[in-house]
Structures are given as structure tokens and as C-alpha cells.
């Protein structure tokens, strides 16, 4: 499965869940071909619903389906699954306390050629602001599958952001995802909390820093809300912290970590993320340079906080 694109992970997991539970429904808004979920229609039949280009209705209909006992999985591109339908998600799913799973694809710079209109740097911030919402930014196929299965079982509202294509392989079927954080590398001088594609960048940064005599712990904090506060405090007790996210530094992982350290164990902290900029077209690697999301940017940040 580690070779599987994230969209295939999504489609396969929904299919597996729908086979064992008739309550599972999948809703698309004319992006099923992009997410490989068009293959679900044949087997799921009327429990696969492509509403067309109507995201507000997609969320509203999902809420109604939840009223009649279904468990809706809602997918569209992350900007449309978040900022476009914020009030629908907030009221009809969040405030109305429905069990629903929203999957926003093409996280941050991975929207690439779709550019600024389609490039979400604020979805995690928006989703974190909804009371009792759970927010995930996944990095690996096994992690994505585990999160989807958890969200299916756990009542309430869940938002998962992911890339669509091949993710870095970090885990296997035995990995325990229950704590919401995974230590992917041990270290003693400082800790990097990263999410999504930035976990791989953080690991690359840790390699570079090791050669320079700096020992870095790397944590994949895929469950951004509720963030594992104990893991953050433990890191703060060890030393300075760097956060790395493919997202605006306002309201995302960096904010979440800062909120915990500021109140519970103040420490030096640097946030790698998009700063006061909109998206634009470009290849992901180019955009990561533009927005200063590369492993070298993380290396520089670690050195800053250690000085």
C-alpha cells in the first residue's frame, strides 16, 4: 500500500468501509475523476452521490443523510471543502453535531497548476476554529487509511487534508496512530513538529543538521486538533521547537503548538509556513522555495532557535 497514491487510498478505504457498513455514503462535487472515486459508483450505487458543482448542497445533503443515519464522506478540493462552505460546515455539520468526514485534497502547494484559486493555505485554520471539530493533515498512505478508519468510527465532525498523489512512505500496517503524533526520528537538541509533505522535509533537515552535530527529533503531528499537548510540552522541556506546515502560519500547526507552549511551557519557537501570501501556479518544489518551505528553510530555523 505504501506505493499507493493518496487518492487510491481514499477510494479503496471508502469501498472497504462501505462493504461492511451500509451506512457509509460518499459525496463528490464533480471532482471524482481527480480523486479516483468515480470507480466507487459501480459498487456503491446510490450510496455514491456526485452532486455536481454544488459544494454547499454537498455539505447540506450530507447533513440530511446523517439525520437519516448515514455516515457521509465528503470530498472535494480543500479550498472548496473549507473556505467555500465554511458556514455550511460550521452550522449544518458542526453546530448540528453530525457525524461526518470531510476530505480536502490538494493540500497547499500540491494544488500546483490550479494556482491561487485552488491553493488552500487556510483550511486547517478555518477548520480548527469550529468547536469540537477534529483536524488532520496526513503524510503517508497508512496514516491516511488509519485516520479514515478512525473517523468512520468516532462520532463528530472530522476534516482531513491530503495530497492526491504519491506521498512519502513513512509507516507500515503495524504503526500505531492512536496518539495523534508519531515520532519519526529521535533527537536531543530540538524538536520539529511537521505535517503532511513537510514531514519529509523535516526528516531531510534533520539529516543535514546531524552532519553538523545537531540532534533533531522529528514528530509527525498529523492530528492537528486536538493536538497531543503532552507531546508538545515534553518537546518544550527538551528545548526549542520548530514547526513546519504546508499552510499559512496563522491558525495552523504552528499556531496550535505555540498556543500550548505559551500557556503550559514557554520555549523558543519558529514557524515554517506560508506567511501573508496567496497561492499561485507552479510546480510544488518551486512553490516550496517561493514560500520558504524547504528543508534548508527548516535547517535555518533550527539554527535560529538554538542560538
Amino acid at each position: 500500500m505504501k506505493e499507493m497514491e493518496m487518492r487510491q487510498v481514499y477510494a479503496q478505504t471508502i469501498l472497504e468501509l462501505s462493504r461492511k457498513d451500509q451506512r457509509v455514503v460518499a459525496l463528490e462535487a464533480d471532482l471524482s475523476s481527480s480523486m479516483s472515486t468515480n470507480q466507487l459508483k459501480e459498487e456503491m450505487k446510490d450510496r455514491y452521490i456526485n452532486v455536481g458543482i454544488m459544494e454547499a448542497e454537498q455539505v447540506g445533503a450530507a447533513a440530511g443523510l446523517a439525520v437519516t443515519g448515514f455516515i457521509p464522506f465528503i470530498h472535494t478540493f480543500a479550498p472548496f471543502a473549507s473556505r467555500r462552505v465554511f458556514d455550511q460546515v460550521f452550522i449544518s455539520l458542526g453546530y448540528a453535531q453530525k457525524h461526518a468526514i470531510i476530505v480536502g485534497s490538494d493540500a497547499g502547494v500540491t494544488a500546483e497548476m490550479n494556482g491561487g484559486t485552488h491553493m488552500p493555505f487556510e483550511d486547517v485554520a478555518l477548520m480548527r476554529a469550529i468547536p469540537k471539530n477534529h483536524v488532520y493533515d496526513v503524510s503517508d498512505p497508512y496514516e491516511f487509511k488509519a485516520v479514515l478508519e478512525h473517523c468512520y468510527q468516532a462520532p463528530g465532525l472530522h476534516y482531513i487534508r491530503t495530497i492526491r498523489k504519491q506521498a512519502t512512505s513513512l509507516y507500515d500496517a503495524q504503526t500505531n496512530f492512536s496518539e495523534g503524533v508519531i515520532t519519526v526520528r529521535e533527537g536531543t537538541d530540538t524538536t520539529i513538529f511537521a505535517t503532511g509533505i513537510m514531514v519529509a522535509e523535516a526528516l531531510a533537515a534533520a539529516e543535514i543538521l546531524e552532519e553538523q552535530g545537531i540532534s533533531v527529533k522529528v514528530i509527525d503531528a498529523f492530528r492537528v486538533k486536538p493536538l497531543n499537548a503532552a507531546a508538545v510540552v515534553q518537546a518544550a522541556k527538551m528545548g526549542p521547537i520548530v514547526t513546519a506546515e504546508n499552510h499559512n502560519v496563522i491558525g495552523g500547526l504552528g499556531s496550535a503548538v505555540a498556543e500550548i507552549t505559551a500557556e503550559q511551557y514557554p520555549t523558543k519557537l519558529a514557524r515554517i509556513g506560508v506567511k501573508e501570501q496567496f497561492g499561485q501556479v507552479g510546480k510544488a518544489d518551486y512553490l516550496m522555495e517561493v514560500y520558504q518551505l524547504t528543508c534548508q528553510d527548516i535547517v535555518d530555523a533550527v539554527k535560529r532557535v538554538l542560538n
Binding site: 450510496r47 448542497e57 450530507a62 440530511g64 443523510l65 439525520v67 437519516t68
Partner: peptide, 16 residues
């Protein structure tokens, strides 16, 4: 505008 969307989901759910 949101209630009518939910109503369509309820009706669709009952139809399924």
C-alpha cells in the same frame, strides 16, 4: 438556505 439542503439529504437518505 441550509435547511432545504438538509431536507434534500433526508429525502435522499430515506429513498436509499
Amino acid at each position: 438556505g441550509q435547511g432545504i439542503s438538509a431536507a434534500t439529504g433526508i429525502a435522499k437518505g430515506n429513498k436509499i
